[in-house]
Amino acid sequence: MSIPDYQSLMRPVLEILENGKEQTVKEICSELTTQFSLTGEELEELLPSGRAKVFNNRVGWAVTYLKKAGALYSSRRGVYSITGRGQELLKDTNSYIGINDLMQFKDFREFKNNKPTVSKQSKGDALQPTNVTTFVKEKTPEEALGQAWEEMRDSLELEVLDQIKQVTPQFFERLVVDVLVAMGYGGDRADASRAVGQSGDGGIDGIIDEDPLGLDVIYIQAKRWEGVVGRPEIQKFAGALQGRRAKKGVFITTSGFTKEASEYATMIDSRIVLITGRRLARLMIDHDVGVSSVEQYIVKRLDSDYFAE
């Protein structure tokens, strides 16, 4: 039997997890290998890039899409269990579960259309049927490539953010320094590493040079939090800046900020930049901190000027 496409793997993945127990992606792959009687040669088949195995890649995307649709729940990285929505999918659809079946869910449609949404997924999610039964209309090759890139980028951002939330506070401080240095702040890494995590008083976690010459400084507050940061924390940070006659500050958190906190940051004299966990993950990707390049595709077009006589 040839390797099934990723949509054909969606129902089998849900069926493996139907008993409600948590399983790792590796365990899911192992059961699917037996179910589809895949040979060793098929399991070793690589994508055109030569850097990833076709079967593992397809299982990974099946799991990712099911999670985005709320059919799977991940208690920790790489470990999944079925949700109430996933159980309902197994009951209410035919033998095949694909993208069109997942498009009935609002959060999955927003994901496919690249519209950010705040997920409140839980194991008890109920099925919410809609009239949407067809997938998004066909795209040009350029649009399809761009959408695929954005989906992979979105998935990577969430994966990076999940990893950030698991590190120690000390590692988080070093991570913040690495990102700022990669963006051009703080001079070299050795100088910057002495700036963060040493003051620790007055609502300020550290200081870093704004430029390699140290002509100005930026004060830093770094919070590895799950809950959103409210206005009182920003007020405290602003007061600390005022006490040092500072005009510039960066408040970084692994979560987000309330509307009141964001509005307050725009009202005061000091310039305070608020960086959410998602934006921090995006900056890490943009500046190659904690990520590495896997493959690069160069898209070319006809140079009509070359053929002009």
Rank of each mutant, 00 (worst) to 15 (best):
Q7N: 11
K53Y: 15
E31S: 13
L46E: 11
F55T: 02
Y6T: 01
T33W: 08
E42H: 03
L14A: 02
S8W: 01
P12I: 02
V54R: 08
V54M: 11
R11N: 03
E31F: 10
V59D: 05
Q35D: 12
R51I: 13
E45R: 15
S8Q: 10
Q35K: 15
K68S: 04
N19R: 11
D5N: 09
T33A: 12
A69W: 05
T24W: 06
S8N: 10
T39W: 07
V59H: 01
L14N: 03
V63E: 01
G50P: 06
Q23E: 14
G20E: 07
S49A: 12
K53R: 15
D5S: 07
Y6P: 00
G20Q: 14
K21V: 06
G50D: 06
T24P: 00
S30N: 13
T24G: 15
E27A: 13
K68T: 02
L17P: 05
I28F: 09
V54N: 03
G20Y: 10
G20M: 14
Y6W: 04
G60K: 11
P12N: 05
C29G: 13
Q7V: 03
E44M: 14
E31D: 14
V63M: 04
F55M: 04
T64S: 09
S8T: 07
K53L: 11
G50Q: 10
K26N: 14
K26V: 13
L32H: 02
Q35G: 03
K53H: 13
V63R: 01
L9E: 04
R51E: 15
T64I: 02
L32I: 14
L38D: 10
V59F: 02
E15I: 06
